[in-house]
Nucleic acid binder design. Sequence first.
DNA 1: TTGTAAGCGTTATCAA
DNA 2: TTGATAACGCTTACAA
Lengths: 338, 338
Amino acid sequence: MRTLKAPSAPTLEMVGAHAGVSRATVSRVVNGSPKVSEEIARTVRAAIAELGYVPNRAARSLASKQAHAIALVVPEDMTRLFGDLYLATIIVGINDRLQESDYVLNLMVASTDPHGKTMRYLQGGNVDGALVVSHHTADTFLSTLTSTIPVVFGGRPAAGIEGGYVVDVDNVAGSRTGTERLIAIGRKRIATITGPKNMRVGSEREAGFLAALADAGLTPGPVVEGDFTLSGGAAAMRTVLEQDPSIDGVFVASDSMAAGAMTVLRSMGIQVPTDIAMVGYDDSEAARSTEVPLTTVRQPSEEMGAAMADILIAVLNGAEDRPRTTILPTQLVIRASA
Amino acid sequence: MRTLKAPSAPTLEMVGAHAGVSRATVSRVVNGSPKVSEEIARTVRAAIAELGYVPNRAARSLASKQAHAIALVVPEDMTRLFGDLYLATIIVGINDRLQESDYVLNLMVASTDPHGKTMRYLQGGNVDGALVVSHHTADTFLSTLTSTIPVVFGGRPAAGIEGGYVVDVDNVAGSRTGTERLIAIGRKRIATITGPKNMRVGSEREAGFLAALADAGLTPGPVVEGDFTLSGGAAAMRTVLEQDPSIDGVFVASDSMAAGAMTVLRSMGIQVPTDIAMVGYDDSEAARSTEVPLTTVRQPSEEMGAAMADILIAVLNGAEDRPRTTILPTQLVIRASA
DNA sequence: TTGTAAGCGTTATCAA
DNA sequence: TTGATAACGCTTACAA
């Protein structure tokens, strides 16, 4: 049952009274001002703990003209596209860092109303900065944003977008490393199943594959385009085998496709990795669930989220010297398939 | 076109000056108070438009004691577990409704610090209500919340949790429908791969399966417990076949497991649906990516998010008569596997 | 180092 | 129907 009048949340004033100091002093302690004697600070902290004081964000924002909030902007299609852990994991990474700050995350799904409320909200001083999970598909309306508030993109945004910081994964190096694994274990006739070539990730991963082979002086086997789905991977695998039944290794640009490809090999009685070694990409759950556990290239999604948050917070704190682009390394995860 | 010094956002005062009225009147117009003469209202609206006035959320919250914010609380393990579209889709649904209101969504990943900042933040008047995506796993610390602010759970929370509203999916009816599909196409010897039995969804879906068979007067085939993963589904499928090689249908409690199960059938040369018909659950991306597109039971995730938001907003607007529990129906999606 | 006091932009209570 | 005028809880010069 609710009391007639809920005991209102403790204020600075009340904490001050409790600790025998003024509200200003409490404010200083809360904000970690150095000019407070350690003794008083201790008393105040005790009072804060005892009363369970939490700063009122509205009041704080009003007085300081800072929102103490960060927007997480997710293009709508992302929410539909990304079944895999990508988004969720990035969020975990972001959250990790934000938890230590006193910023709050405002989730905005963009594009339901691209030019209206969302933008006005973002530009209206309601958030101090924005994190955009773009995965290379960012809408251009976001470029307006970068001139108003600090923005960090996760994944390089579309070409037209100026300004902002970018955290990205080195796709070329990643697929190069994956391919090199195949070369290192002695495979000579190596094919690849790529992502859609009109997607940046698709072409970048193909580039890394080709570069690794070129460096090793090997001629590439069949290069077949896939669509990042399980069935697409299966279909592509069949095409690869039609084009060249003699291959002994295949680099597949996503784990889902690799899982599909593996079922095809299995059904044809081709042994992995004995007959054909296989390397995937993503280190998603699929990589652990295939019959032969998949050697794959891990994307540091959680680190990516953490880096995005770190950069934005640093910039909000006045860091001027941050590089505009941060490239995170990928990591080869060796399992049984190669 | 930008001035040297960004002109600070227009305030009520400025709009008032522009329109020749007091700030109070402007406030009334903004909030649609009926007691303003239409003529003045028009003038004020013109001034608002001309100046591009947007209310300052912080000031408004401070004065009205309403945060105009809603927390979306996601237990941390959810972010790890739910690769499938479940979470993302619910968020889309929530967002859909919130976009029309003037509430903002605060994303909170719970449990990094269960008893500390998050709870205090939630209870400190920083949000007006909370949406908890519990999927039956809600931590009990959330029960404290329900006595402070309105809470809507998506998925029935753990037993100990009192209060709050619940939006849930009818799992029993869903799996019953899925199983009935198998029966309808003439299968007689039907097995099931269940979810973990200690999870509510797991046991509920098993119950629906058994109920459908009982109604049809059929004896259940093997009932094997899975873990909702692809490889778990594969392993369970092998167990099913060991226990009874003669089955002609299988109801699988998640699409991921169904995908895994299907690879096993395929590798054994068993045709789907000719030899064994299969029905999955979730209608996740996996259902469209399997070799034989999966007939499956769709969870209305987006509608679930929308319902959660609707209910919370209604309650925040003073609705007292809302039922505490809302059950959403599932839907059978027929593809090729059954 | 600490306290006083003036805002921050709204809402809401009174009078007028 | 309108306009003054207090709050709301916090930050931040400015004094002490």
